[in-house]
Amino acid sequence: MTRALAHTLVVAILAALLTVAFWRSGYEFQWEGVWAYRQKFVTGWLTTVAMSLASLVLSALVGLVTAVGLRSRWPLIEAAARVYVELIRGTPLLVQLLIGFYVVANAVGLENRYVVGALVLALFSGAYMAEIFRGGLAAIPAGQRDAARAIGLTPWQSLRLVILPQAIRLVLPAVAGQLVSLIKDSSLLSVIAVSELTLAAQEVNSFTYSTLESYLPLAAGYLLLTLPLSALSRWLERHFAYEAG
């Protein structure tokens, strides 16, 4: 059986089971009410895409810098990176968003909820990225750094030309997984009234009282983003593949 056929088969079985489950629940779908608000879903989805993209790029940067910080020889830098990672990973994103928006952003006079939302999301995801990158950097054999120094590379050149190209290949699957999480976590931005996809679904639900009709498109909207990302990550993995040694 080919891989594509196997995938189709599994999806078909799952769809059949879900259809049966919906049918047995006796739920009567009323799509007309929700359809009237379709524009809201489209703008919400586009906002989710934009917010995810912005925090995705930022979180990769934050993660990389923090990962280097975690491996720093200077205790103060190492401590700062470690405290950041543990604090963020140990608390709910919900709390971070509320404190970030109503306390920190307020204190520094930052009013744009979209900017604050992207920043908090990036800082949240960046802590996880940092641990992923740190693991990747640590997995590169010491001999590679020795060789880089022996041929006269500066520490920065060694990182850029020798260590990172190898580490990126190692961390790619984990980073892709983290990005998928990031996209779904962006749904929490609704608590600071960022009009993204989840808030759109909540609003449509409160206008129409059609709960499943409001939330099923929500699931589809996220899958539309996360499935291509997973495919891209598998393609990148093959593209970067080479045997160690």
């Binding site: 054999p141 022996a150 006269g152 020798v162 045997e243």
Partner: peptide, 25 residues
Amino acid sequence: TVFQAYNLFPHLSALDNLTLPLVHV
């Protein structure tokens, strides 16, 4: 310097291993 475990850069071709120090250093 030459190491016991070669320490070639596995992500680069043999040729790029040789030219990397010439170009970047």
